[in-house]
Amino acid sequence: MISLFMTFSDPRGERQVEPNDLAAVAALVGSVPEMTEGLLFTPLEQSVDHPYRADGLGPAFALQLRFSNLFACEAAMDRGSVLARLAVGAGLSGLAGLDVTHQVMLTRAFPVEAAAYPASTNVSCSYLVHYPGPAEDMNAWNLHYLEHHPAIMRTFPNVRQVEIYTRIDWVDRLPSRRVEHMQRNKLVFDSPDALSLAVNSEVIKRMRADFLQFPPFSGGNKHFPMLTRTVRPGV
């Protein structure tokens, strides 16, 4: 599966997307041809305790759009497309003037013990992580990370989803700025409180111990907890 990430950032950290604009974006995302699922990420309404709060507030808004294959994703990024409109704000005041970047990546999903959300869950909470890179040896990096880190991630209490995204080559005609982070990750929980409980558990010690074994890389990493809304095709 292929994931397209679009990130809308305010360098001053002052902007937020209002509910009306969010509903308009959801309608646009639902109309993207051959998209299988869209995820809308917004900042938490209140801060939560997590180990990487020093990374800042994160983007004002972000999207993850899933496609079954690369060709469908590339076709959706042509000039005049819905995604091209979103990349320049789609006429919405909440998106106008933000710094917009995009990246297409391969999705690697890993099984978890309890993937089903409680029936009362309407908005989940995602822990978005990215490594800008580069690594000295990308093959060595990927081999170590994929063989070790997901096995630890899936032991977080009540984690609903573990995904790791790795780089691919792609073509597009979007007016936003391309980025090529060497890796992204996503952990999903029922709520901000559930995320905070998990990432402050004993599991984080195992994560840190494995981090010290990573093959050499530069660029650090960033961690942002974000509220997550799901959009289905045709919505």
Rank of each mutant, 00 (worst) to 15 (best):
H130P: 01
E45T: 10
L143I: 12
L212V: 14
K222C: 14
E163H: 12
H50R: 06
V112A: 02
L65Y: 08
I2A: 00
C125S: 03
G58V: 08
A119E: 15
T107H: 07
L174I: 06
A62T: 07
S31R: 07
A119Q: 15
S196N: 03
L106Y: 03
L4G: 02
D169L: 00
S31A: 14
L28K: 08
G58M: 02
G97L: 03
V112R: 04
T7K: 11
E37L: 13
F217M: 06
S176G: 02
R167D: 15
W170P: 01
V48R: 07
V235M: 15
G89W: 10
P134F: 05
E45L: 14
L174D: 08
S176K: 06
R12N: 13
T121W: 04
L63G: 04
M35P: 00
V188C: 07
E34L: 05
S126C: 07
Y117H: 14
A140T: 11
P111M: 02
L197N: 07
I152L: 05
A75G: 12
V162I: 02
A109I: 00
P225Y: 00
R229M: 00
L98Q: 08
D172W: 04
G30F: 07
H144L: 06
H102R: 00
H102S: 09
S176C: 08
N221G: 12
L40F: 04
F110P: 03
F71G: 11
L227F: 04
Y52Q: 09
R15H: 12
N20D: 15
I204F: 13
H148E: 09
H181T: 01
Y131A: 05
I164C: 03
R208H: 13
D193P: 03
